[in-house]
Simulated scan of single mutants.
Amino acid sequence: MTGTRQPVLSVRELNVDYGTGDGAVHALRDIDLTLHRGEVLGLAGESGSGKSTLAYAVTRLLAPPGVITGGDVLYHPREGAPLDILALTPAELRAFRWQELSIVFQGAMNSLNPVHTVRSQLTDVLKAHRPGMTRPERDTKAAELLALVGISADRLAAYPHQLSGGMRQRVMIAMALALDPEVVIMDEPTTALDVVMQRQILRQLVRLREELGFSVVFITHDISLLVEFSDRVAIMYGGRVVEEATAGALYRDARHPYSHGLLHSFPALHGPRRELSGIPGSPPHLTAMPSGCAFHPRCPKAFEPCAVRVPFLGHPEGEEERTVACWLHHDHDHDH
C-alpha cells in the first residue's frame, strides 16, 4: 500500500435522510469511514445500498430532498488544521471542490457538453480556478492532462461525439485531475464500458495515483473490480457499512454473510469450477427496512438476535485491520 496511514478524509457518524418529518427515509445511518493518504478505498454494495448518496453527501452535492441530519466529514490537508466540509460556505465550497476534492460521476462519459470541444471544457476548469494562467499555458496543461490518461493532444479539437465511450470517460478523469486534487471520488465510473476498457481505465488510474499521490474513493457494485484495484474495501448494505477490511483479507475470508455472498456471485477465472451461490431475495427498500440487521431476511446464517438488534461495526477478536457488523462475530449478550 502506498498510503502512509495519515487520514486525508474522515467521515464520522454520518446520517442522511430523504425528506423530513414522519415521512423521512433514512438513506445513510452512522457511516464511519477513513480514507488514508495515497490509498484506494473501494466501496461496494448492490443498488440502493447508499454508495452514491455517500459520495454526494461527502461532496455536498446532495440534491433535495436529501438532507444530512448528523455527523462530520473532515478533510485533512497536508498542513494545517482539518477542514469541516459540512460547514463550508458556498464560496469556500467552490474553491474546495476540484482543487482539493473532485468527483467523477456515474455515467460520466455523458457529462461532457456536446457543443463544446474537449479543449474548451478542460480549459474552462483552469480558467475558473487558475485565473493567473495565460491561454497558451491553459492549452499546454490541457494537452498534458490528456496525455496523462493516454489520449493524444490532437483530440483537443474534437467534440464529445467524435470520441469513443472509453475516451470520453478518460477525458472526465483528466478533468477531475486538472487541479491536482488530493482526493478523487469515482462513482461507478466505468459502468457503461466493456470489461476490457474498464480494466484499462482502472489500471491507468492506479498508475496515476502512484505518480501523482492522490487518494481515491472508488464506488461500484462490481466487487471483483474492487478486490483487484483497491487497497481497502468497505461493503455497504441498507445504508450502513457492514464490513471493512484490506482487499486481500476480504477476498480470502469475508466475515459478513453479505460480503461472502457478493464474492461468490461471480465466477472464478482460475482453479476448479464452483457453483455460484449468489444472494437470495432483493435488497430492502429504504421505506420498509427490516428490524434488527437489515440483511437478516436474506441471510443463511441468521439466528436469534439478528431480527431484533442492529449489530454494531466493530473489530472481530484479534483482527485490528477489519471491522464487521454481524452478531456472528460479536458477543450478542452485551450491549455495545
Rank of each mutant, 00 (worst) to 15 (best):
S230T: 10
S230G: 06
D231L: 07
D231P: 06
A234T: 09
A234W: 02
A234E: 03
I235F: 01
I235Q: 03
I235D: 02
I235P: 05
M236Y: 06
Y237A: 04
G238M: 04
G238I: 03
G239Q: 06
G239D: 05
R240H: 10
R240T: 12
V242D: 02
V242Y: 02
E243Y: 10
E243M: 05
E244C: 12
T246F: 02
T246N: 07
T246S: 15
G248Q: 14
A249N: 12
A249D: 14
L250F: 01
L250D: 07
L250C: 03
Y251N: 15
Y251E: 14
R255C: 02
R255S: 10
H256F: 03
H256M: 08
P257A: 04
Y258A: 08
S259V: 07
S259K: 09
G261I: 03
G261E: 08
L262T: 08
L262Y: 07
L263V: 06
L263D: 08
L263T: 08
H264C: 04
H264R: 13
H264Q: 13
H264S: 12
S265G: 10
S265N: 13
F266R: 14
F266T: 15
A268Y: 00
L269G: 07
L269W: 01
L269K: 10
H270M: 12
H270R: 15
H270Q: 14
G271A: 08
P272V: 11
R274N: 09
R274V: 13
E275T: 14
E275V: 13
E275C: 00
L276Q: 11
G278Y: 01
G278H: 04
P280L: 08
S282V: 08
S282T: 15
P283V: 11
P283G: 09
H285Y: 00
L286S: 12
T287Q: 12
P290S: 10
G292L: 03
G292W: 02
C293E: 03
C293V: 09
C293L: 03
A294S: 12
A294H: 14
A294K: 11
A294V: 11
A294M: 09
A294P: 11
A294L: 01
